[in-house]
Amino acid sequence: MTSATTTPGFAGAQRPSALPTLPEGWPIGSYGTYEGAQRAVDHLADSEFPVQDVTIVGVEPMLVERVAARLTWGRVLGSGALSGAWFGLFVGLLLTLFTQGAGIAPMLIGLVTGVVFGLVSAAIGYRATRGKRDFVSSSQLVARRYDVLCQPRNAERGRDLLGALAMGNPFATN
Rank of each mutant, 00 (worst) to 15 (best):
G158D: 06
S3I: 06
T5V: 12
F117Q: 07
V91W: 06
R127F: 10
E35W: 05
S17L: 07
F117H: 05
L22P: 03
P8I: 08
W86M: 15
P50H: 02
G78H: 01
V142K: 11
T72P: 01
G158Y: 03
L119V: 11
T129S: 13
P170D: 09
G80E: 06
A45E: 10
M1C: 05
G114P: 03
F10L: 12
G74T: 10
L119H: 04
S17Y: 01
V91G: 05
A172H: 05
T5I: 10
V120C: 04
E60D: 15
A13W: 09
G125D: 10
A85C: 03
Q151K: 12
M1I: 05
R130D: 08
T113G: 15
T99C: 02
A155S: 13
P23I: 02
L165T: 01
A172V: 01
V51K: 01
R15D: 02
G118A: 06
P170I: 08
S79V: 06
L97M: 12
V115A: 01
L165Y: 01
G118I: 03
I109A: 15
T99V: 11
L22R: 11
S83H: 10
R153H: 12
A69S: 15
L97G: 14
M62E: 14
L165K: 02
V116P: 02
A37D: 08
R39Q: 12
R66Q: 13
V115N: 00
W73R: 09
D46L: 13
T129L: 15
R130Q: 13
G125E: 08
G131I: 04
V59T: 02
R157M: 11
S121H: 07
I104R: 10
G25T: 03
G80N: 08
T6G: 12
G125N: 13
Y34A: 09
A164L: 06
T21P: 01
S137E: 06
T96K: 15
G110W: 06
P16I: 00
A122D: 11
Q14K: 14
E24V: 07
R144E: 12
V76M: 12
G32F: 04
R133Q: 10
V57N: 00
A18Q: 04
D160H: 08
M1A: 09
